[in-house]
């Protein structure tokens, strides 16, 4: 049994201003984050108002949605304050030579 990883994006494409990048994986929007020097990825769509989290604000390992300021923990996907109440999907990530891969299943 081996893990399956899929190339998602390039570290160089992450915006230096926001620390985020919106990418698409099998038709699903994924938000890639550069938190300090770590790369993370979650679902991009905020489950509250359907906004793109890639347009939000990173602060202390959390992402704040630009629409209504719902906040999620980037590492765990946990909702941290109203109006968000449901967790978001978190992807396992690995980086090789500036390429960002996410785990998409077990082969």
């Amino acid at each position: 049994m081996s893990e399956q990883w899929t190339l998602l994006a390039e570290v160089a494409d992450i915006s230096p201003d926001t620390g985020t990048l919106r990418a698409v994986l099998d038709g699903e929007a994924v938000c890639v984050y550069k938190v300090d020097d770590r790369i993370c990825a979650t679902q991009d769509r905020c489950p509250h108002g359907n906004a793109s989290l890639a347009e939000g604000y990173i602060e202390n390992g959390t992402i704040e949605c630009p629409l209504h300021q719902g906040v999620f923990d980037i590492a765990s996907g946990a909702p941290l304050c109203p109006p968000v109440t449901t967790p978001i999907k978190v992807y396992a990530v690995k980086v090789e030579d500036g390429h960002i891969y996410v785990r998409t299943g077990q082969a």
Binding site: C65, P66, Q69
Partner: peptide
């Protein structure tokens, strides 16, 4: 959610968030 600028309120009437609070 108000349809005009999407200000968002809880069922108790509290303002929960508003778009572009931190600008664009």
């Amino acid at each position: 959610t108000c349809p005009y600028h999407q200000w968002n309120y809880s069922l108790n009437g509290n303002l929960q968030g508003l778009p572009f609070r931190r600008g664009a």
